[in-house]
């Protein structure tokens, strides 16, 4: 079995000495990269784990295990109180994804090189939108929207929507850039206008892919919406934080189980949705 490296070298038909020289050079550069990475590891471990950790507070292994053991057990009495926040979390994720998809439409349209209406302005604008949306963590977005629209589900929906725009728009724009130009030309040739080109030539080609991306993002949004309560945006996160602050550790475990439950529901739904789409 030849590795990909060997086949690549073979194709260029170099002499054996040249091949060996290239391999040697590659080996040295690999070695340099590995050495740099190792130095980083040692330095990072020294700073983060050895210096920065409060070893005394942590105590012995036994006491760490003891504090971990507090989370064992399930607070069954909490379950009835979790139904409403769980439904809320699920709905926040759904609406957040929907709003994200709506915001995404102009973003993907402007951000695809081949259909962007005015290249020097709209393309960078859409790219900026995508990067901004992806680079800011959902917690930070939620903080911002809580400040703007107040506590509650609305802030969570907006945070999730803005956060999911980046990924959906990026994937959709890439899908649009990869389309087969044949149908576009065909629609243009029979006199279709811009909207008709979009509707009959581009959309049918990219729709299955985009729907898959949306379902994927929706699944992630369920995970995200479960923590938005930490900053006051409603749902299970709020209950989680309340249990944590009252040191009801079995309750914390219960909330995590509930989160896993709704994620499982999401996964099942997304499995069927994906099968239906593709």
């Amino acid at each position: 079995m030849l590795s990909t490296l060997d086949t690549d070298l073979r194709r260029t038909a170099l002499s054996a000495d040249e091949v060996l020289a290239i391999r040697r050079r590659r080996r040295w550069s690999m070695l340099a990269v590995v050495a740099a990475l190792t130095v980083m590891v040692v330095w990072s471990i020294d700073v983060t784990v050895i210096e920065d950790t409060d070893w005394e507070r942590m105590g012995s292994v036994a006491s760490v295990l003891e504090s971990a053991g507090r989370f064992m057990g399930v607070d069954w009495a909490l379950f009835p109180d979790l139904v409403k926040p769980a439904i809320e979390t699920f709905m926040i994720a759904c609406l957040g994804t929907l709003l994200g998809v709506i915001i995404c439409i102009p973003a993907a349209w402007f951000g695809a090189m081949n259909i962007t209406p005015f290249k020097p302005l709209t393309y960078p604008l859409a790219r900026l939108m995508m990067t901004l949306s992806r680079s800011i963590h959902e917690i930070v977005w939620a903080l911002f929207f809580v400040a703007v629209v107040g506590l509650g589900a609305m802030a969570g929906i907006f945070a999730l929507a803005v956060r999911s725009v980046g990924f959906i728009a990026k994937m959709s724009a890439e899908a649009i850039e990869d389309i087969n130009p044949g149908p576009v030309e065909a629609i243009r040739a029979v006199g279709g206008n811009g909207f008709q080109v979009l509707r009959y030539a581009i959309l049918p080609q990219v729709l299955p892919q985009i729907l898959g991306v949306i379902v994927f993002e929706w699944e992630i949004n369920i995970r995200r919406s479960a923590i938005l309560g930490l900053v006051g945006a409603g749902g299970l996160g709020l209950v989680f934080f309340r249990q944590m602050n009252t040191f009801n550790f079995p309750g914390v475990t219960t909330v995590i189980i509930a989160i896993l439950g709704i994620i499982l529901v999401g996964e099942v739904v997304s499995y069927f949705a994906r099968k239906a789409v593709i």
Binding site: T53, D54, S67, F71, I139, R223, I259
Partner: peptide
């Protein structure tokens, strides 16, 4: 699935409560 399902913030909260503040729980 379990690692993925639980959000990193929840992992961080759990580890902070077990190990105390600092970068170790973050790591």
């Amino acid at each position: 699935m379990g690692f993925r399902a639980v959000h990193e913030m929840i992992w961080a909260i759990l580890f902070v409560s077990i190990l105390g503040f600092g970068m170790l729980p973050g790591v």
